[in-house]
Design a protein around this nucleic acid. Structure first.
Lengths: 205, 205
DNA sequence: CGAATTCTGTACCGAACGGTAAATTACTGA
DNA sequence: TCAGTAATTTACCGTTCGGTACAGAATTCG
């Protein structure tokens, strides 16, 4: 077993027996499905296959673990939804985004909905940190789409008179709503139809 | 103090000292702000100004009280958002709906959102009853808008080729997304801009 | 090697949780 | 007036909660 840290320097003391990324995956899965309050430390430690003191040593406490899980979701799963933004044509970017996102929130991999839209808002009413995290995530997705739509507007794919700032927020808003609908049990077909209307609204005159 | 029940028959035994509607208002407010898991029975009984056994006698248990609170929200506050649907012109109906809804989800004292969009999805991942309730509420709002938009289509306000079923779901989806954004702290102005795009998408060609 | 360091496993802590038993009080009906 | 009924009050129950103390095990450094 390698005992080197990120910088290549040897670490002293007993090496950790768990993989931090795998543990975070399991924590994410648990919080995602059950939310913050309904996920107990017993559930979490069992899912993560970790001991309680190891969890606290590695992640701080339950609240910090939840925040880390949300962040993990954003950088891992959320980022994969944004990959289609690299498509040259904005219509393909929009279609690819919603397609990936709809597969993700209705998918076999993980619970339905998304941890941000379905569990974070509840905590945002209690914790200012959670509220800030929710705002930051929305800002990030808004920003990614605003930049992409601005480029599309520059390329003549979107009319000049349209406000790409609002349109970017509209796209991200679609994601939030579809995520909640998926949590309620909506079919891919239903979600796809709504997404198509949003895409048409963004591209349309 | 009157001691008659809904049918006018006299009730036997000691009359309740609390107003069921007022107690439900307080429970709603508590669950709304803090979500299900973060609202303890102590908080609830204090807010409702009620004793614990009275709560259980009147509402069953915490889970049922939460469900009743959500239902109370839908029939009281949600219904008020839908009042503008009676407007003769569908553009006014849409504008009035989003206007009322945006006012409702952006409280003066900190962000609010709506209890359905912000707290129910988290429980929907744990309880099938909560999931069913979430689906039922969405269905109800979808249905109201589908009917209203179908009438507008009949009146020539919306092009015949458009699918009012999907458009109704689009409007309700807008509500969900704006509610979450409000919870994150978005301004009325931001929400209004997004709502305007949705209205334009529904009315547009 | 021994000392220092860090993770693991167990066992436990006080607090808070949801929920209830039992006695009391206020009302209706005869 | 008194039995019957239902809500209130208080006090409590067992469980589960998030979090930690402590001892032992695995590693690096000198």
């Amino acid at each position: 077993m390698s005992t080197r840290n990120a910088t290549g320097a040897r670490k002293r003391g007993r090496p950790a027996e768990f993989d931090r990324e795998a543990a975070l995956d399991a924590a994410l899965e648990t919080f995602w499905r059950r939310g913050y309050g309904n996920a107990s430390l017993d559930e979490l430690t069992t899912a993560m296959n970790i001991n309680r003191p190891s969890l606290y040593g590695a992640f701080g406490n339950k609240e910090q673990l939840y925040a880390a899980s949300v962040d993990h979701y954003v950088t891992k799963i959320g980022a994969s939804y944004l990959a289609p933004l690299a498509q040259p044509r904005v219509a393909d970017a929009l279609g690819g985004f919603f397609g990936a996102m709809i597969d993700g929130v209705t998918g076999k991999h993980g619970p339905r909905g998304c941890i941000v839209a379905c569990t974070l808002p509840a905590e945002a009413g209690v914790s200012t940190a959670a509220q800030a995290q929710l705002a930051a995530v929305l800002d990030q997705i808004d920003g990614a789409w605003i930049a992409r739509l601005a480029a599309a507007q520059g390329a003549g794919e979107i009319a000049k008179r349209r406000d790409v700032h609002v349109l970017g927020q509209l796209v991200a808003s679609g994601m939030l709503a579809l995520s909640i609908r998926a949590r309620a049990g909506a079919s891919k077909r239903t979600l796809r139809a709504i997404a198509d209307e949003i895409v048409a609204a963004v591209l349309g005159p």
